Simulated assay, not measured.
Amino acid sequence: MTEKKTARRHEEQDIPALPATSWAVLGLLSFGEELSGYDLKKWSDWSLRFFYWSPSFSQIYGELKRLEQAGFAASRMVAQETGTRDKRVYRITDEGMAAVRTWARTAPVDPPVLKHGPMLRLWLGHLLEPEQMREVLGQHREFAESMRKRAEADVAGAQTEEAWKYPMLTLKWAERYYASERDLADAMLADIEELERGSRP
């Protein structure tokens, strides 16, 4: 076995057994800023939700507790203005940075799992009226286009931050993905029209 393969296997063995949500939260902290739970939720809504999912507040705080117990994150209280409660902020530790770097470099990449509500309805189209199916696809088209526009706007916002150059690429991917979903909905609507024409006497 080569030295490179040996080192890779050693790194893989050193990856802690954490759920994907832990790695997502630790990844948000890996950009080097101290963030509150509210900040982490805002950042995940801004980026993660386009391609993975955005954890709830309870999930984020649960993962922060897990990461602190593992020594991968540390927190401190920050005094706020008079009359408001102090805020707890979190930062990644050196151990946490090493762990998330190892995970990103060596952990197996899970294939995407398609869970597509409109496609499931289309599969059951024989149980719907054509107009109902068109409505489902029309709603999906509107959703895809709204997500595309949001990703497009967030790409512009990310360009000002050097640290976000790779997250910006994921936003570009999301923009292109939702554009393709919009176009697929248009194609399916055209296919339904063709099916209807073929079934007419």
Score class of each variant (00 low, 15 high):
residue 165 K to F: 13
residue 32 G to E: 09
residue 191 D to L: 15
residue 165 K to Q: 07
residue 9 R to K: 14
residue 175 E to D: 07
residue 186 D to C: 03
residue 178 Y to W: 02
residue 100 V to I: 12
residue 11 E to D: 10
residue 15 I to R: 13
residue 59 Q to N: 09
residue 194 E to K: 13
residue 197 R to I: 06
residue 32 G to Q: 05
residue 138 G to S: 02
residue 42 K to I: 04
residue 147 M to P: 00
residue 52 Y to F: 09
residue 194 E to T: 03
residue 182 R to Y: 11
residue 152 E to G: 12
residue 157 G to K: 08
residue 125 G to V: 03
residue 197 R to A: 13
residue 109 V to A: 10
residue 187 A to N: 05
residue 193 E to P: 03
residue 45 D to F: 07
residue 8 R to Y: 12
residue 134 R to T: 05
residue 4 K to C: 12
residue 75 S to D: 12
residue 43 W to V: 07
residue 4 K to R: 15
residue 191 D to A: 15
residue 201 P to M: 11
residue 121 R to P: 03
residue 173 W to T: 14
residue 174 A to Q: 03
residue 143 F to V: 00
residue 38 Y to P: 01
residue 99 A to E: 00
residue 162 E to D: 15
residue 96 G to L: 06
residue 41 K to Y: 05
residue 61 Y to W: 13
residue 30 S to M: 08
residue 137 L to C: 04
residue 109 V to H: 09
residue 73 A to S: 03
residue 101 R to I: 05
residue 66 R to Y: 10
residue 83 G to H: 11
residue 85 R to A: 09
residue 175 E to P: 01
residue 29 L to E: 02
residue 26 L to F: 03
residue 51 F to R: 14
residue 162 E to A: 14
residue 89 V to L: 05
residue 122 L to Y: 14
residue 16 P to E: 06
residue 179 A to P: 04
residue 76 R to S: 07
residue 49 R to S: 08
residue 106 T to Y: 15
residue 28 L to H: 08
residue 102 T to Q: 10
residue 144 A to D: 00
residue 39 D to K: 04
residue 150 R to P: 00
residue 111 P to C: 05
residue 100 V to Y: 11
residue 77 M to L: 11
residue 62 G to C: 01
residue 55 P to Y: 02
residue 51 F to Q: 08
residue 123 W to C: 11
residue 162 E to H: 14
residue 71 G to A: 01
residue 140 H to E: 09
residue 131 E to Q: 11
residue 154 D to W: 10
residue 185 A to I: 01
residue 176 R to D: 09
residue 105 R to I: 09
residue 4 K to A: 15
residue 38 Y to M: 14
residue 173 W to D: 13
residue 11 E to C: 08
residue 100 V to G: 07
residue 10 H to K: 15
residue 160 T to Y: 10
residue 45 D to V: 05
residue 29 L to V: 03
residue 78 V to Y: 01
residue 161 E to Y: 14
residue 72 F to H: 02
residue 141 R to M: 01
residue 121 R to D: 08
residue 100 V to S: 10
residue 129 E to D: 13
residue 176 R to F: 09
residue 36 S to C: 04
residue 34 E to Q: 10
residue 79 A to I: 14
residue 51 F to I: 07
residue 177 Y to L: 12
residue 20 A to H: 04
residue 130 P to M: 02
residue 23 W to K: 02
residue 121 R to T: 13
residue 26 L to P: 00
residue 77 M to H: 09
residue 56 S to M: 05
residue 29 L to Y: 01
residue 92 I to F: 02
residue 188 M to G: 03
residue 57 F to D: 10
residue 91 R to C: 06
residue 35 L to K: 05
residue 118 P to N: 01
residue 159 Q to W: 10
residue 29 L to N: 01
residue 76 R to K: 12
residue 94 D to W: 10
residue 31 F to D: 07
residue 119 M to Y: 15
residue 172 K to T: 02
residue 103 W to T: 08
residue 105 R to K: 15
residue 175 E to I: 04
residue 53 W to M: 06
residue 185 A to Y: 02
residue 196 E to F: 00
residue 168 M to L: 06
residue 95 E to A: 13
residue 64 L to Q: 04
residue 180 S to G: 11
residue 15 I to H: 07
